[in-house]
Design a protein around this nucleic acid. Structure first.
Lengths: 118, 118
DNA sequence: TCTTCATTTAACGTTATGGTTAAATGAGGA
DNA sequence: TCCTCATTTAACCATAACGTTAAATGAAGA
Protein backbone atom coordinates (compact mmCIF):
# COMPACT_ATOMS: atom_id res chain seq x y z
CA UNK A 1 0.00 0.00 0.00
CA UNK A 2 1.34 3.46 -0.82
CA UNK A 3 2.24 5.91 1.90
CA UNK A 4 -0.64 8.29 1.43
CA UNK A 5 -3.18 5.47 1.50
CA UNK A 6 -1.63 4.18 4.68
CA UNK A 7 -1.73 7.61 6.28
CA UNK A 8 -5.36 8.26 5.43
CA UNK A 9 -6.37 4.73 6.42
CA UNK A 10 -4.65 5.17 9.77
CA UNK A 11 -6.50 8.44 10.35
CA UNK A 12 -9.84 6.90 9.38
CA UNK A 13 -10.34 5.41 12.83
CA UNK A 14 -11.56 7.62 15.71
CA UNK A 15 -9.55 5.75 18.33
CA UNK A 16 -6.39 6.25 16.31
CA UNK A 17 -7.18 9.91 15.77
CA UNK A 18 -7.71 10.23 19.49
CA UNK A 19 -4.29 8.72 20.07
CA UNK A 20 -2.69 11.06 17.55
CA UNK A 21 -4.37 14.04 19.16
CA UNK A 22 -3.16 12.94 22.57
CA UNK A 23 0.37 12.52 21.29
CA UNK A 24 0.31 16.02 19.84
CA UNK A 25 0.55 17.23 23.44
CA UNK A 26 3.62 15.12 24.10
CA UNK A 27 4.96 11.60 24.33
CA UNK A 28 2.94 9.02 26.23
CA UNK A 29 3.13 5.40 27.29
CA UNK A 30 0.80 2.79 25.85
CA UNK A 31 -1.09 2.69 29.11
CA UNK A 32 -1.59 6.43 29.14
CA UNK A 33 -2.82 6.34 25.58
CA UNK A 34 -5.19 3.48 26.34
CA UNK A 35 -6.73 5.10 29.41
CA UNK A 36 -9.43 7.21 27.73
CA UNK A 37 -10.77 4.35 25.64
CA UNK A 38 -13.12 1.57 26.61
CA UNK A 39 -11.37 -1.09 24.58
CA UNK A 40 -8.94 -3.85 25.52
CA UNK A 41 -5.18 -3.53 25.70
CA UNK A 42 -4.60 -5.75 22.69
CA UNK A 43 -6.93 -3.55 20.65
CA UNK A 44 -4.89 -0.47 21.58
CA UNK A 45 -1.71 -2.35 20.83
CA UNK A 46 -2.97 -3.11 17.34
CA UNK A 47 -4.00 0.50 16.74
CA UNK A 48 -0.50 1.57 17.70
CA UNK A 49 0.95 -0.98 15.33
CA UNK A 50 -1.16 0.51 12.52
CA UNK A 51 0.01 4.03 13.40
CA UNK A 52 3.61 2.86 13.55
CA UNK A 53 3.36 1.02 10.23
CA UNK A 54 1.98 4.25 8.75
CA UNK A 55 4.97 6.07 10.24
CA UNK A 56 2.71 8.41 12.14
CA UNK A 57 4.31 7.42 15.44
CA UNK A 58 7.49 5.89 16.78
CA UNK A 59 7.88 3.66 19.81
CA UNK A 60 10.87 3.44 22.07
CA UNK A 61 11.49 1.41 25.18
CA UNK A 62 11.87 3.18 28.50
CA UNK A 63 12.36 0.75 31.41
CA UNK A 64 9.21 -1.37 31.32
CA UNK A 65 7.16 1.05 29.27
CA UNK A 66 6.89 1.69 25.57
CA UNK A 67 6.79 5.40 24.94
CA UNK A 68 5.11 6.70 21.79
CA UNK A 69 6.08 9.84 19.90
CA UNK A 70 4.22 11.56 17.12
CA UNK A 71 6.08 12.00 13.85
CA UNK A 72 5.60 15.00 11.61
CA UNK A 73 6.27 13.86 8.10
CA UNK A 74 3.22 11.83 7.13
CA UNK A 75 0.80 14.26 8.66
CA UNK A 76 2.44 17.02 6.68
CA UNK A 77 2.21 15.01 3.47
CA UNK A 78 -1.45 14.22 3.95
CA UNK A 79 -2.27 17.83 4.67
CA UNK A 80 -0.29 18.87 1.63
CA UNK A 81 -2.19 16.47 -0.62
CA UNK A 82 -5.53 17.85 0.47
CA UNK A 83 -4.22 21.38 0.19
CA UNK A 84 -3.11 20.85 -3.37
CA UNK A 85 -6.45 19.45 -4.42
CA UNK A 86 -8.28 22.29 -2.76
CA UNK A 87 -6.02 24.92 -4.22
CA UNK A 88 -6.34 23.44 -7.67
CA UNK A 89 -10.09 23.25 -7.34
CA UNK A 90 -10.36 26.84 -6.21
CA UNK A 91 -8.01 28.11 -8.91
CA UNK A 92 -10.25 26.82 -11.69
CA UNK A 93 -7.20 26.21 -13.84
CA UNK A 94 -6.98 23.23 -16.09
CA UNK A 95 -3.51 21.93 -15.34
CA UNK A 96 -4.61 18.49 -14.30
CA UNK A 97 -1.63 16.69 -15.73
CA UNK A 98 0.74 18.73 -13.60
CA UNK A 99 -1.26 17.98 -10.48
CA UNK A 100 -1.45 14.28 -11.27
CA UNK A 101 2.28 14.11 -11.62
CA UNK A 102 2.99 16.16 -8.54
CA UNK A 103 0.83 13.81 -6.55
CA UNK A 104 2.07 10.59 -8.12
CA UNK A 105 -1.48 9.35 -8.22
CA UNK A 106 -1.30 7.13 -11.26
CA UNK A 107 -1.65 3.86 -9.40
CA UNK A 108 -3.66 1.28 -11.26
CA UNK A 109 -3.72 3.49 -14.29
CA UNK A 110 -4.59 1.94 -17.58
CA UNK A 111 -2.09 1.90 -20.42
CA UNK A 112 -2.72 5.09 -22.36
CA UNK A 113 -3.15 5.10 -26.11
CA UNK A 114 -0.67 7.93 -26.46
CA UNK A 115 1.87 6.04 -24.39
CA UNK A 116 1.58 2.74 -26.22
CA UNK A 117 2.07 4.53 -29.54
CA UNK A 118 5.36 6.05 -28.50
CA UNK B 1 -19.37 6.30 11.16
CA UNK B 2 -18.46 9.89 11.92
CA UNK B 3 -17.79 12.37 9.17
CA UNK B 4 -14.05 12.64 9.64
CA UNK B 5 -13.62 8.88 9.63
CA UNK B 6 -15.65 8.66 6.45
CA UNK B 7 -13.59 11.38 4.80
CA UNK B 8 -10.25 9.82 5.66
CA UNK B 9 -11.46 6.34 4.73
CA UNK B 10 -12.63 7.63 1.37
CA UNK B 11 -9.24 9.24 0.74
CA UNK B 12 -7.38 6.07 1.75
CA UNK B 13 -7.87 4.51 -1.67
CA UNK B 14 -5.62 5.55 -4.57
CA UNK B 15 -8.35 5.14 -7.16
CA UNK B 16 -10.63 7.41 -5.19
CA UNK B 17 -7.85 9.95 -4.69
CA UNK B 18 -7.26 9.84 -8.43
CA UNK B 19 -10.94 10.57 -8.99
CA UNK B 20 -10.89 13.44 -6.51
CA UNK B 21 -7.79 14.89 -8.16
CA UNK B 22 -9.41 14.63 -11.57
CA UNK B 23 -12.55 16.32 -10.30
CA UNK B 24 -10.49 19.19 -8.92
CA UNK B 25 -10.00 20.23 -12.52
CA UNK B 26 -13.71 20.27 -13.17
CA UNK B 27 -16.85 18.15 -13.37
CA UNK B 28 -16.70 14.84 -15.21
CA UNK B 29 -18.95 11.99 -16.18
CA UNK B 30 -18.54 8.53 -14.69
CA UNK B 31 -17.08 7.30 -17.96
CA UNK B 32 -14.51 10.06 -18.04
CA UNK B 33 -13.53 9.35 -14.47
CA UNK B 34 -13.24 5.63 -15.17
CA UNK B 35 -11.06 6.01 -18.24
CA UNK B 36 -7.62 6.23 -16.58
CA UNK B 37 -8.17 3.16 -14.42
CA UNK B 38 -7.84 -0.49 -15.30
CA UNK B 39 -10.78 -1.61 -13.22
CA UNK B 40 -14.34 -2.49 -14.14
CA UNK B 41 -17.26 -0.07 -14.37
CA UNK B 42 -19.01 -1.51 -11.34
CA UNK B 43 -15.85 -1.00 -9.31
CA UNK B 44 -15.73 2.67 -10.31
CA UNK B 45 -19.41 2.99 -9.56
CA UNK B 46 -18.82 1.71 -6.06
CA UNK B 47 -15.90 4.08 -5.51
CA UNK B 48 -18.15 6.94 -6.52
CA UNK B 49 -20.76 5.76 -4.10
CA UNK B 50 -18.19 5.82 -1.31
CA UNK B 51 -17.12 9.33 -2.25
CA UNK B 52 -20.73 10.46 -2.42
CA UNK B 53 -21.57 8.88 0.94
CA UNK B 54 -18.58 10.74 2.38
CA UNK B 55 -19.98 13.92 0.84
CA UNK B 56 -16.79 14.49 -1.10
CA UNK B 57 -18.68 14.54 -4.38
CA UNK B 58 -22.17 15.12 -5.71
CA UNK B 59 -23.79 13.45 -8.70
CA UNK B 60 -26.39 14.95 -10.98
CA UNK B 61 -28.07 13.56 -14.05
CA UNK B 62 -27.38 15.18 -17.41
CA UNK B 63 -29.18 13.42 -20.25
CA UNK B 64 -27.84 9.86 -20.10
CA UNK B 65 -24.76 10.70 -18.12
CA UNK B 66 -24.13 11.13 -14.41
CA UNK B 67 -21.93 14.13 -13.86
CA UNK B 68 -19.79 14.30 -10.73
CA UNK B 69 -18.76 17.45 -8.90
CA UNK B 70 -16.23 17.84 -6.14
CA UNK B 71 -17.47 19.33 -2.89
CA UNK B 72 -15.35 21.54 -0.70
CA UNK B 73 -16.53 21.06 2.83
CA UNK B 74 -15.20 17.66 3.85
CA UNK B 75 -11.82 18.22 2.29
CA UNK B 76 -11.55 21.46 4.21
CA UNK B 77 -12.52 19.75 7.46
CA UNK B 78 -9.99 16.97 7.01
CA UNK B 79 -7.24 19.43 6.24
CA UNK B 80 -8.23 21.47 9.25
CA UNK B 81 -8.06 18.46 11.55
CA UNK B 82 -4.54 17.62 10.46
CA UNK B 83 -3.56 21.27 10.66
CA UNK B 84 -4.76 21.54 14.24
CA UNK B 85 -2.84 18.48 15.32
CA UNK B 86 0.29 19.71 13.63
CA UNK B 87 -0.02 23.19 15.04
CA UNK B 88 -0.61 21.85 18.51
CA UNK B 89 2.33 19.50 18.20
CA UNK B 90 4.63 22.27 17.00
CA UNK B 91 3.46 24.70 19.66
CA UNK B 92 4.56 22.40 22.47
CA UNK B 93 1.76 23.72 24.63
CA UNK B 94 -0.15 21.50 26.92
CA UNK B 95 -3.71 22.40 26.11
CA UNK B 96 -4.82 18.92 25.18
CA UNK B 97 -8.27 19.20 26.65
CA UNK B 98 -9.07 22.18 24.46
CA UNK B 99 -7.89 20.36 21.37
CA UNK B 100 -9.88 17.25 22.22
CA UNK B 101 -13.02 19.29 22.58
CA UNK B 102 -12.44 21.30 19.45
CA UNK B 103 -12.05 18.10 17.52
CA UNK B 104 -14.89 16.24 19.16
CA UNK B 105 -12.69 13.17 19.31
CA UNK B 106 -14.09 11.53 22.41
CA UNK B 107 -15.74 8.63 20.67
CA UNK B 108 -15.53 5.39 22.60
CA UNK B 109 -14.20 7.24 25.59
CA UNK B 110 -14.27 5.50 28.91
CA UNK B 111 -16.23 6.91 31.83
CA UNK B 112 -13.79 9.14 33.66
CA UNK B 113 -13.27 8.93 37.39
CA UNK B 114 -13.63 12.67 37.74
CA UNK B 115 -16.89 12.55 35.85
CA UNK B 116 -18.43 9.70 37.79
CA UNK B 117 -17.62 11.47 41.05
CA UNK B 118 -19.49 14.62 40.09
C1' DT C 1 -41.61 0.89 -30.08
C1' DC C 2 -37.06 -1.18 -30.20
C1' DT C 3 -32.26 -0.68 -29.60
C1' DT C 4 -28.26 1.32 -27.73
C1' DC C 5 -25.40 3.04 -24.40
C1' DA C 6 -23.96 4.74 -19.59
C1' DT C 7 -24.32 3.41 -15.33
C1' DT C 8 -25.96 0.78 -11.36
C1' DT C 9 -27.44 -3.35 -8.78
C1' DA C 10 -27.00 -8.23 -7.62
C1' DA C 11 -24.42 -12.08 -6.30
C1' DC C 12 -20.32 -13.83 -5.31
C1' DG C 13 -15.29 -14.58 -3.53
C1' DT C 14 -11.09 -12.98 -1.08
C1' DT C 15 -8.66 -10.28 1.99
C1' DA C 16 -8.50 -6.57 5.53
C1' DT C 17 -10.15 -4.54 9.78
C1' DG C 18 -11.36 -4.22 14.50
C1' DG C 19 -12.84 -6.41 18.49
C1' DT C 20 -12.42 -10.24 22.03
C1' DT C 21 -9.94 -13.55 25.61
C1' DA C 22 -5.97 -16.34 26.90
C1' DA C 23 -1.22 -17.00 26.77
C1' DA C 24 3.55 -15.26 26.01
C1' DT C 25 7.26 -11.94 26.70
C1' DG C 26 10.48 -9.34 29.16
C1' DA C 27 12.28 -5.80 32.33
C1' DG C 28 12.19 -4.39 37.50
C1' DG C 29 11.75 -5.05 42.18
C1' DA C 30 11.34 -8.17 46.36
C1' DT D 1 15.42 -16.43 41.70
C1' DC D 2 10.55 -15.43 41.58
C1' DC D 3 6.76 -12.40 41.07
C1' DT D 4 4.60 -8.47 39.07
C1' DC D 5 3.25 -5.46 35.73
C1' DA D 6 3.09 -3.35 30.86
C1' DT D 7 2.59 -4.71 26.60
C1' DT D 8 2.39 -7.87 22.69
C1' DT D 9 1.20 -12.14 20.20
C1' DA D 10 -1.94 -15.91 19.10
C1' DA D 11 -6.27 -17.61 17.91
C1' DC D 12 -10.59 -16.62 16.94
C1' DC D 13 -15.04 -14.23 15.15
C1' DA D 14 -17.98 -10.81 12.66
C1' DT D 15 -18.24 -7.42 9.40
C1' DA D 16 -16.50 -4.29 5.87
C1' DA D 17 -13.87 -3.40 1.71
C1' DC D 18 -12.76 -4.15 -2.96
C1' DG D 19 -12.64 -6.78 -7.00
C1' DT D 20 -15.15 -9.64 -10.49
C1' DT D 21 -19.09 -11.00 -14.09
C1' DA D 22 -23.95 -11.05 -15.32
C1' DA D 23 -28.23 -8.84 -15.22
C1' DA D 24 -31.14 -4.68 -14.56
C1' DT D 25 -32.27 0.16 -15.31
C1' DG D 26 -33.50 4.11 -17.80
C1' DA D 27 -32.94 7.95 -21.06
C1' DA D 28 -31.90 8.94 -26.29
C1' DG D 29 -32.28 8.15 -30.79
C1' DA D 30 -33.68 5.32 -34.94
Amino acid sequence: MDTLSQTFAALADPTRRGIVTRLASGDATVGELAEPFAISGPAISRHLKVLEAAQLIERRIDARWRVCTLKRERLAEAQKWIGEVRQFWESGFDRLEALLQSQDERTNERQRKSESKE
